[in-house]
Nucleic acid binder design. Structure first.
Lengths: 295, 295
DNA sequence: GCCAAGCTTGGC
DNA sequence: GCCAAGCTTGGC
């Protein structure tokens, strides 16, 4: 199953009236958890980029997001840890798990963005929320697309150091899987999940307040933990760029074709779609419902 | 100057090519800071509700938001404190100030929503960010529309207790101004700015984890500080409902007329507006620019 | 470049 | 009802 087939499948079961959201999620989980590593890796490589053809704010977007949680849990399983996908929604992390060989537990949160995504705001990463959601667990791991993290400075870097949140990426996980990294009595991956704490020991308060991107040092800790040369990781991260650029070219085509489609619309169709697109009736209904709630 | 005239003025100077954003802000500030209390109060009553005719994501929305900062600073001045509007943007509170009679400083943040606003997410209140932006100041005061706060439970209530952030509202400030509350050697308003801390002393950890709306108890502290009966405040808050409902009826009309306008569009106009509304060219440009940044 | 200012839909 | 999942424009 290719990534394109996976997203088609998500769109299909999301539309199906016979399958509830929860059932769809379980079906996806069965599918993905049972994939052999070589079939899983191509999906892991693409999952951080939401296809533009997934409707924004739609049920299929929610199911896609559930799929990112499942892919994250599957990855944790592949690297030798227990991992389950959370059923809750509000005020909770996506993934929970524990080490098989060492005495620690963790929570994980999966994030994906479209390539057309504009501002990635500090509040959108919810790093401080992750600290709360960590609760009694030992580590909190946030997984985002590597090249969508703020490049130079961001409040999220200070927040991660403060709360010991591990800012990881799908691209890092690909590197782990490609190199068959598996936790064992000899290898304790908690050094990675704990790297913000380790870094904060050597960062002065003044530097912390600069909110500098700390991936250079983070990558060093990651590589020393898994016993790989830093340059291998850097080369691997670089390789992902070409793939993303290629994805981007396809995604641009999608929107260009959409423009051509729209140019063929009849007047009635264009007017009706415009009212839908501007959410005018929804706004009216939102105001009505709000003032209703006051009376 | 009525509120409607103020928003017209904001729209006008925001469009003007001769006036920079900063200059417009200073002009607004001169205007609002010089208003006598009886001219200011009607504006304070309306400022928390962004008019629907202010374009979303536009420069005029940014200037409107600057205006909420100015109105907040003016209110703090009216109740006897020093207060200035911040010029920074990223990673900073909107308003800074200090008491004239007591030895404390504070930061403030002003929020406004349209009546058509849907989810008010916990991350949108940025309560934890307020704690960071407080820095060395003593208090952090967040001012939102009273009836847009989460009604029963929210992570923001736990966050406010944790970080000692004062969750206040425009409606509370109206009550202060209407009753000529002014800080003095005898009256120390920091009891109000500090009320989350006071409340957290009597709230058990178990209750805190429920993230319960604590306004009932907050209102008691507010009233005992300013020496007013709780029922007066509650009656005053109630009175605002009718005003908001009336505003809502006007705002609904605005969108209904918009629908009628659109129904008169020509095919070309509707298609062109639809492409604009769906931000299709912006999406293409965003993808191009992102993949460009990778190469 | 960062992220303040805003924002929506739908799952639990 | 709360807020997870997403999202954009423009000021510094």
């Amino acid at each position: 199953m290719t990534f394109a087939e996976l997203t088609e499948f998500i769109k299909k079961i999301s539309k199906s009236k016979d399958t509830s959201f929860q059932e769809s999620g379980l079906e996806l989980q069965k599918l993905i958890f049972s994939l052999p590593k070589d079939k899983f890796l191509p999906i892991l490589k693409e999952i951080g980029t939401i296809p533009e053809n997934i409707d924004h704010d739609s049920s299929e977007e929610k199911l896609y997001s559930k799929c990112t949680d499942i892919v994250l849990a599957k990855t944790f399983q592949e690297i030798g840890m227990k991992s389950t996908v959370n059923k809750e929604r509000a005020n909770s992390a996506d993934v929970f798990g524990k080490s098989e060989y060492h005495d620690y537990t963790y929570v994980g949160d999966a994030k994906a963005f479209r390539l057309s995504r504009t501002a990635k705001n500090q509040k959108d990463f919810k790093v401080k929320s992750m600290v709360d959601w960590k609760g009694d667990n030992d580590y909190a791991i946030l997984v985002c697309p590597y090249y969508q993290y703020p490049k130079t400075n961001s409040q999220i870097y200070g927040q991660a150091l403060d709360g010991n949140v591990c800012l990881l990426s799908w691209e890092h996980l690909v590197f782990f899987i490609e190199h068959n990294i598996v936790e064992s009595t000899k290898m304790n991956l908690s050094r990675i999940w704990n790297f913000s704490d380790t870094l904060s020991e050597s960062i002065t308060i003044k530097d912390k307040n600069k909110n500098t991107n700390f991936y250079q040092d983070g990558n060093k800790i990651i590589c020393s933990t898994i016993g790989k040369p830093l340059n291998d990781l850097i080369a691997s991260l670089e390789k992902h760029k070409a793939r993303i650029i290629q994805r981007g070219q396809g995604e641009i085509k999608f929107w260009e074709e959409k423009i051509q489609d729209i140019k063929k619309y009849s007047k009635e169709q264009a007017i009706s779609e415009l009212i839908t697109s501007m959410k005018l009736n929804e706004k009216i209904e939102a105001i009505r419902s709000y003032i209703q709630s006051l009376s």
